[in-house]
């Protein structure tokens, strides 16, 4: 129904990254819809495709909340729903600085068959992707995750670093990870005319991410590490497509992970809903 009521879209602003968060927040009242998928073929296991549906909403200029619904399909095994995540991001400084911190807090209730790989922490590795769905889905992963997101914009470049700490609410150790990325639009100035394939609509970058072990075994030993060139394109109508190929650089990593996503932002969704349900929203 809301698509019928909805007035128009605008452009998502998070750049071409899949794993790395920038300090860019969702605009208040906007709802961003994203489908992120990842496919891989781990050695010794079946190929898979996993996807996450994201619903990101700007509550305040300093507070963004997001819900994920995860699932995956492994041919010759099954297609299953693997859980949900609820994240909140809080911008910590009101103005723009050289380095801009954002605090990220997430609760996730997923199972061991989740292969969306939205972050890599601890000693996550290729063997996690090999376990058969029937077996892996029995493992409950109720986890709290915190990230410190640091972001900067410099002469058209977007630079972001994330430090991740994750704790399974069961009897698991604290796990750590990181992600970092750099990207840039292919043109910094906009052309006067509406265009689809002009350079300003493309963003290219690279991100690196991986685990940092646990609190008792901190470091790179036995962890997965990836380097992933990324490319994003935004249509004049506001739909953003992203694609990335991640290459595992340690023996623990999956050799290749191909990711793609589609994003569309519903501008002022909150206002539209308030009007639709006559909840005393903003008046002209």
């Amino acid at each position: 129904m809301f698509f019928l009521l909805y007035a128009g879209g605008s452009r998502g602003a998070e750049g071409p990254f899949f794993i790395t968060y920038t300090h860019q927040m969702e605009e208040p009242g906007n709802l961003e819809l994203t489908t992120k998928a990842v496919t891989g073929s781990p050695d010794g296991g079946n190929g898979f495709i996993a996807a996450a549906a994201e619903f990101e909403y700007g509550i305040k200029a300093w507070w963004t909340t997001e819900v994920y619904l995860d699932g995956q399909s492994t041919p010759a095994e099954s297609t299953i729903f693997t859980g949900y995540r609820w994240e909140n991001r809080f911008r910590m400084l009101s103005r723009e600085h050289w380095i801009n911190p954002v605090l990220y807090l997430e609760f996730e209730d997923i199972n061991g068959a989740d292969k969306t790989l939205l972050e890599v922490v601890g000693h996550d590795g290729e063997e996690d992707l090999i376990a058969p769905n029937d077996e892996a889905r029995r493992e409950k992963q109720r986890e709290i995750e915190a990230k410190l997101i640091l972001g900067s914009y410099f002469k058209g470049w977007t630079i972001a670093e994330n430090f991740i700490a994750e704790k399974n609410l069961g009897h698991e150790p604290y796990e750590f990870g990181y992600a970092a990325g750099i990207s840039r639009p292919l043109a910094l100035a906009a052309t006067p005319d509406r265009c689809e394939l002009c350079r300003e609509n493309f963003q290219a970058g690279v991100e690196v991410y991986g685990g940092l072990g646990t609190h008792s075994d901190f470091g790179f030993r036995g962890t997965s590490q990836y380097i992933a060139p990324t490319l994003g394109w935004t249509s004049a109508g506001g739909i953003m497509l992203r694609v990335s190929t991640g290459f595992g650089v340690t023996t623990t990593s999956a050799p290749v992970l191909v990711r793609f996503s589609v994003t569309y932002e519903l501008s002022q969704f909150g206002r539209t809903m308030r009007k639709a349900f006559d909840m005393g929203g903003d008046q002209k």
Binding site: E27, P28, A61, G156, T158, L188
Partner: peptide, 8 residues
Amino acid sequence: PSFAHLPE
């Protein structure tokens, strides 16, 4: 919100 994500 900030629009610093737009190039200068």
